[in-house]
Amino acid sequence: MPPGPMPPGAQPPAAMVVPQFFVKQRITVMVNRYEVIAANPDGSEGHLLAFAEQKRMKLKEEVVFFSDAAKSRRVFSFKARQRLDVHAEHDVFDEYGQPLGTFSKQFGASLVRSTWNLEAPGIAAVGRERRPVIAVLRRVWDFIPFIGDVWVPFVFHFDFVDAATGATVLVSERQKAIRDRYTVTVPDPRLDFRVAASMAVALDALQSR
């Protein structure tokens, strides 16, 4: 039986929906690389969904996602509108350069507890560090000479909720591992995977900005 009509004002599912995936960081001298990996039903790692690169020292922050580690096809990206600005708004684009969504950091609120705005068709969400106490401890740790820059002992998570309804839109949970590794859950089918993956990578790549 075909699906019935959508309720008035309801937003249809995004073109590309992935309910759960993993983000793993690979650090090199001049480039940060990220693997976005599908989650199998049993919670194990599945196939590679995207491979991302963040080149350091760029005036305008940009991260490009490719279909594989060989970078054979550029599939989406996000880029800052402003140069090296903590308030910078970032646009997410598909492979043809069409906008999919935006995100930005709330600088004032983030001085105590990292806070982000995330927007996509039908969605205006706010994401915050889950544990305020851990947020404060992380900031104290960052001021310890030599140590705060190379080792972070805290596992922290982000929860994004719809600003209108309070419903959960996206959750990023950092795992205990030598290199950065995150489990990302997207319970809202309106949020396109490409926007979700961009936000998840930005939470690692731009978090210290």
Rank of each mutant, 00 (worst) to 15 (best):
L111P: 10
E95H: 11
V86F: 12
R113S: 14
S67L: 09
G97P: 10
E95R: 11
A109R: 12
A80G: 15
K58T: 02
K105P: 03
R56D: 00
L84F: 13
M57C: 09
D68F: 06
E89L: 05
R73K: 15
F93K: 03
R74Q: 15
A109G: 11
K71S: 10
S77H: 05
R73Q: 14
G108Q: 09
E89F: 02
T102L: 02
R73W: 01
R113M: 05
A88F: 07
V86T: 08
R73H: 14
V92M: 04
R73N: 13
L100C: 08
K60A: 09
S67A: 15
K71Q: 13
S114T: 15
R113K: 11
K55Q: 12
A109T: 07
V86H: 08
K79D: 01
E62I: 06
D85W: 05
A70G: 15
S104K: 05
S104N: 10
V112H: 04
H87E: 06
E61T: 05
A69Q: 14
L111W: 08
V64M: 12
A88K: 03
E61H: 10
G97N: 12
K71I: 00
A80K: 03
R81M: 07
F93G: 06
V86S: 10
R74G: 09
E89Y: 04
H90A: 10
R74W: 07
G108N: 14
A69F: 12
Y96A: 14
Y96V: 01
A88Y: 02
K55C: 06
V92K: 02
P99D: 03
F65W: 02
Q106W: 01
S114F: 02
S72T: 13
D94L: 05
E61V: 01
L59N: 06
H90C: 11
D68M: 01
Q54H: 13
F78Y: 13
T115V: 08
F93E: 00
R81V: 00
E61K: 08
S114C: 05
R81A: 12
Q54W: 05
L100P: 03
